[in-house]
């Protein structure tokens, strides 16, 4: 075998790839499910926390800041392992899927809260005053005037952060979630050939390139004429 042939056999063994494609496809579905759950619940929780923070209740705000700082500082893998292996000691045994989902959602919510909050603060005070002077309540002002502007400003950093954390679904492989990476690793150990990993990488590209493109589309879509 020439070097080139060995390279092809190692990473692009068609026969092995074909054999394990169904397994990787199953992993793909799991990753997509996990990613969607993380994005939706993480962003929703982050937005909710940012909205609560605008009420400016001292104790609540202190708790939110503590939560945000904590989960921005902890590596996501540590949170996942803590929930998965520590949970049972506290009388709660989440599946690897649930542990990964909740951990990543919580981490994403912490970053999202901070980004939404910065966006809310960046909306000029005059916007609040104009809306309140026409009789809109605080939550109405937030919903109709402030958040639409804040969210537009936060789309780029939020997209980046969301993609980064969603890629963390691969960490689920550590706690027995059969998502893409874990399916690929299992396939490698059965076939003694790393080609399934190539397939796994391709699966991530198939998943995330459209997400990156969607992010860019949302950015232009949400920009308004100033």
């Amino acid at each position: 075998m020439t070097r080139w042939e060995r390279f092809l056999d190692t990473f692009f063994n068609v026969e092995v790839m074909a054999r394990y494609l169904p397994k990787i496809a199953e992993g793909f579905v799991v990753t997509v499910e996990l990613a969607l759950l993380v994005v939706v619940s993480g962003l929703a929780l982050g937005l909710l926390l940012a909205v609560v923070r605008t009420l400016r209740v001292r104790v609540l705000n202190a708790l939110i800041v503590l939560y945000v700082d904590l989960f921005r500082a902890l590596p996501p893998l540590v949170v996942i392992v803590l929930v998965y292996f520590g949970g049972p000691a506290a009388g709660w045994s989440p599946s690897g899927f649930v542990a990964t989902w909740l951990s990543l959602a919580v981490v994403l919510s912490a970053f999202a809260e901070e980004i939404f909050w910065a966006g809310i603060l960046a909306v000029p005070r005059g916007q609040w005053e104009a809306a309140r002077s026409t009789g809109l309540g605080a939550l109405q002002t937030l919903g109709w005037v402030v958040l639409p502007q804040a969210v537009r400003m936060t789309v780029p950093p939020l997209t980046n952060r969301t993609i980064a954390i969603t890629k963390g679904t691969a960490l689920g492989s550590v706690v027995a979630v059969s998502e893409i990476l874990s399916s690929a690793q299992t396939a490698v150990s059965f076939s003694f050939n790393p080609s399934p990993l190539t397939l796994g990488a391709a699966a991530y590209l198939v998943l995330f390139i459209p997400v990156v493109m969607l992010g860019r589309w949302v950015e232009t879509r949400f920009a308004w004429k100033r």
Binding site: G126, Q127, A130, A131, R132, G135, L136, W144, Q149
Partner: peptide
């Protein structure tokens, strides 16, 4: 809020909502 909607206020810096059209600005309240 009931008092505020009966007192119009016009600001030095306009404070129009940039994400809404002129009609949208007027219609919101």
């Amino acid at each position: 809020n009931a008092v505020r909607r009966r007192i119009g206020m016009v600001f030095q810096s306009f404070n129009l909502y940039p994400h809404m059209t002129a009609a949208g600005n007027v219609m919101l309240a």
